[in-house]
């Protein structure tokens, strides 16, 4: 470069095209960093204010006692964590949440798979069944709660009316601890089924038919085909759906709020509902922040697991 600059203009003209190219190579991406500012800026700003900052703030608050405006007053270190993890009421919530999450996930997965598998067979009216099965995807949480509140209502609900007709004991679904949990699980599973069905159905459709032909040539019955061919082939999707369902279940709030409000006797007082109560009803923001951190750690663990599994997933295309 120096050499070229010091030469006079006459000599510059004689430089061969190749050396000119060497002297200043054109870089298509040179201005990308300015563009990046414009393309990424808005998203990063929003994420910074509403995700990164609150994350740090929640973590920070979890080590403090707070006043009723949510401002930190006394630094207490791990005290909030310790008191939560030794509180029988919080541990009961944790236990209830785990029971709820695993019951919901298992049932959603099992029924979703059953729906998808039976709807995949070409029978008359299968288009009708497919539409019905995906139907609950269009139902929002409040509507689902209203539908099921009516089903579970002890005086006018269908379930207890049926019980009366069949001379079975009438169950107070939403006011007896064990039954309340059952009712909430059933409602959640019902609400989840549409989405789960659609994903499983699409995955089953995308399995190349030759896998089944190969199995048929070897004489595998339909049932064995399902266990030997279908299940292993779609296992990545099963993992994917199970993690999504798990995470969503951990975050359940609306259905709980509408159907049981955490009751009876805190039997359905799941983690998120508890955060809401402690923070916004009791004004105990420090403790609620600690609960938030614990919830975030649990969910982060499962999300991380999901990424690990997605990375390893097999492809059959």
């Amino acid at each position: 470069m120096e050499q070229i600059k010091s030469n006079n203009s006459n000599k510059l003209k004689q430089i061969s095209p190749a050396s000119k190219f060497l002297a200043k190579s054109y870089d298509v991406n040179a201005r990308d960093k300015y563009y990046a500012l414009w393309f990424l800026g808005p998203s990063l700003l929003v994420l910074a204010i509403f995700v990164f900052y609150p994350m740090l703030k929640t973590l920070y608050l979890s080590f403090f006692l707070t006043n009723n405006l949510g401002q930190p007053t006394v630094f207490v270190g791990w005290q909030n964590y310790l008191s939560l993890l030794t509180s029988s009421s919080y541990l009961a919530s944790l236990q209830a949440t785990l029971i709820y999450v695993f019951a919901v996930s298992l049932l959603t997965l099992g029924l979703g798979l059953l729906l998808a598998q039976t709807a995949s067979f070409q029978v008359k009216g299968s288009a009708f069944f497919r539409t019905v099965f995906s139907g609950t995807m269009g139902v929002s949480v409040s509507v689902a709660a209203i539908f099921w509140l009516f089903m579970f209502n002890p005086s006018v609900g269908l379930l207890d009316q049926l019980a009366t007709i069949l001379h079975l004991p009438v169950i107070n679904w939403l006011t007896q601890p064990g039954w309340a949990m059952t009712a909430v699980v059933i409602s959640t599973v019902w609400m989840n089924l549409g989405f789960t069905f659609l994903i499983f159905f699409g995955t089953l459709q995308s399995v190349p038919i030759t896998f089944y032909e190969a199995a048929q040539i070897e004489g595998l019955s339909k049932t064995r085909q399902f266990f030997k061919v279908t299940l292993p082939l779609i296992s990545p999707t099963i993992f994917f759906v199970s993690i999504i369902t798990l995470i969503e279940a951990f975050k359940s709030f609306g259905l709980i709020d509408l159907m049981t409000a955490g009751g009876p006797n805190n039997a359905t007082n799941l983690l998120v509902y508890r955060i809401y109560q402690d923070a916004f009803l009791s004004g105990n923001y420090g403790l609620a922040s600690t609960e938030s951190v614990i919830l975030a750690v649990i969910i982060a663990f499962f999300t991380f697991l999901q990424f690990k599994i997605l990375e390893k997933r097999v492809t059959y295309k």
Partner: peptide, 27 residues
């Protein structure tokens, strides 16, 4: 009879030997 498919229909979750053994085990 046996059949060889265009996309091979090799089960991705089985190794080579298990794939070859698939039909034999099924029988």
């Amino acid at each position: 009879l046996t059949m060889v498919f265009q996309n091979y229909a090799l089960f991705p979750f089985l190794n080579v030997a298990e794939n070859v053994a698939f039909g034999l085990k099924a029988r």
